[in-house]
Amino acid sequence: MKLDNRFTSYHLDILKEIGNIGAGNAATALSKLLQRKIDMKVPSVRVVDFDEVMDIVGGAERMIVSVFLRVEGDAPGNMFFIMSPTQASRFVRYMTGDETFDFTRPPYSELALSSIQELGNILSGSYLSSMSDFTSLSLYPSVPSIAIDMVGAILSYGLLELSQVNDYAIVIDTTFVDEVDQGEEMKGHFFLLPDPPSFDTIFTSLGVPTDET
């Protein structure tokens, strides 16, 4: 695989640092918004095939609540903010005060959907602005779009761009855990999936050479 040969563990560490800075800021924003502690895990950068991308968040068939947006600017890519229905429902209940809201019981109110969308907006904005500060690249989010469905149906969408070039994806994955979830399996994820040409842009911006052989 071309990318694998060109990028060393050093490159992957740099991507990890981007995940660290970006998601760290996003977690802080989330924490402020919800006025409670959100723990962030050490990010991972994985080079995985498409089925494995689905497995990171529990397999292609699992139901999730997700906010998707395009990263536009110098280093385009896709970004997902992924939550379990339980977790997303709790966020909505907190933000809207509607204690009966539940993502496992459609239809969903406009207010619930737009509050999750706004959550995605704030988090992606803080992720990208810190990534932008770090790399000096101009990056901005598209209008976020929300989907509540199977992992495979949602994430495959974010793979379309890179699937024209590769049969695998480089996923910058950061998980966060809501403090009330400690001990449970409920985790949220930030996925950043740069388009293949964006990797060179990111590394060049940081003065890191990539071997073109």
């Binding site: 689905m54 292609a60 068939e61 495979g152 495959s156």
Partner: peptide, 14 residues
């Protein structure tokens, strides 16, 4: 072939 079955999960735009 019968008696097997075949499945795929999470079709979206695919």
């Amino acid at each position: 072939q019968d008696p097997g079955i075949i499945r795929t999960s999470g079709l979206g735009s695919c």
